[in-house]
Amino acid sequence: MRSLEDCNPIAAAVYFLAVTGIAMFSMNPCLLFISLCGALLYFLVRNRSRGAVTHLWMLGLFLVLFLVNPLFSHNGATVLFILNNNPVTLEAAVYGAAAAVMVLAVLYWFRSFTQIMTSDKLLYIFGGLSPKTALVLSMGLRYVPLFSRQAAKIRHSQTALGLYKDDNLIDRFRSGVRIFSVLVTWALENGITTADSMAARGYGSGRRSRYTIFRFDGADAFLLAVTLVLFGSTAVSVGSGALLFTYYPSIQPPAVTPLAVSGCVSYGLLALVPTILEAEEKIRWTCLKLKI
């Protein structure tokens, strides 16, 4: 097996959709806690000590989300104390904590998602719709940064020419408008070269085919199958109501049934898949290195 980063982008994207989808559509605290653990573990395995700032932000966000709900929502039967004539309830506090865990879990999953799914992988997924879409997306990815670099160059040139009369805001705004208009001229003018280059290499001479550096092999199929089976099993438990956790008016956890347990276990496995892949690869690599 390979780590999630080296898998086919479609398999990886399906995995992220599955794992975050469950977290977003179930408010069961057990599932949410599993999700957060899985996401955090994977993030730590990938980034190790880097990302301290991220963790601090996440902690702050957690506290805010956790506190906001009981302060503004006064539903629930168990009153803990009265604040400014408003009751603060246990149920609202628990709900706030669960919601905060959910947001954190999803954010950590997305953090890993953006690290793994680089622009060319997204392009591979969306470009599958048609070779033309693939080309348009690819050109877009090239031109947006190109234009912003050119805009910076123009601004520097104009500054050194003494275009800006003073250091005031209006003057800057007017210069900004001029730079934008120059940028459009530049883009159109130089676009001709690009169009020539495309024509010279046969663009528009017939049906396009599509080349990509990503393959889809047995390992990807296996990952996809595992993802779908575990997702399906969890979804059945969630959908049947076996994992329904009631917060209001008073907290009522679901009964411990085989269906509920199987749901939690399969989601636990699902959340651990990327960490397992990563660990497996590292262990195997260490063993292989010992042979060298």
Partner: peptide, 9 residues
């Protein structure tokens, strides 16, 4: 022009 002949990213 090296830059402008390139089409993709």
């Amino acid at each position: 022009n090296p830059e402008q002949q390139i089409v993709t990213d």
